[in-house]
């Protein structure tokens, strides 16, 4: 009985991307905590920002340089995909360690673009 409840709680955590859930009813009191892997997953493969679509790489307004600090949700670069411009943002605070592409390079799907340290 309790196992079912606990499994549902874990499902909810996954679905809503939560790291902690406290639950209490007359039969069960439990606190579940997930280790912080979701942030790394956003990074994909040790800090590499990868392209989510095929397109052309465009520098943002003030082009990034290696060594530059960026904040979470700051626009890192733009992908032009069939004339639609997509802003790619930083998943967390960090420092730009590497930039592998330059303006107008073609990006394939899942390509490593820059490394966020």
């Amino acid at each position: 009985m309790q196992l079912k409840k606990i499994k549902s709680l874990i499902e909810i955590m996954d679905e809503k991307n939560l790291t902690k859930i406290d639950y209490e009813d007359k039969d069960l009191k439990i606190s579940l905590e997930k280790s912080n892997i979701s942030e790394l997953e956003e990074d994909n493969e040790d800090g590499w920002i990868i392209s989510p679509t095929v397109g052309t790489y465009l520098d943002r307004d003030k082009p990034l340089k290696v060594g530059q600090k960026v904040k979470k949700n700051e626009v890192l670069f733009i992908i032009n995909s069939m004339k639609v411009l997509n802003n790619i943002v930083a998943p967390r605070d960090g420092i730009i360690e590497e930039i592998l592409v330059k303006e107008n390079d073609m990006l394939e799907y899942n390509q490593k673009v820059m490394k966020l340290g």
């Binding site: 095929v54 995909s81 069939m82 073609m106 799907y109 899942n110």
Partner: peptide, 19 residues
């Protein structure tokens, strides 16, 4: 690489292919 394994995202992805 044009997309995910799901054909709709890759081999049927007209825009990405043309791009």
């Amino acid at each position: 690489c044009v997309g995910e394994s799901n054909p709709s995202n890759s081999y049927l992805n007209a825009d990405s292919i043309i791009q």
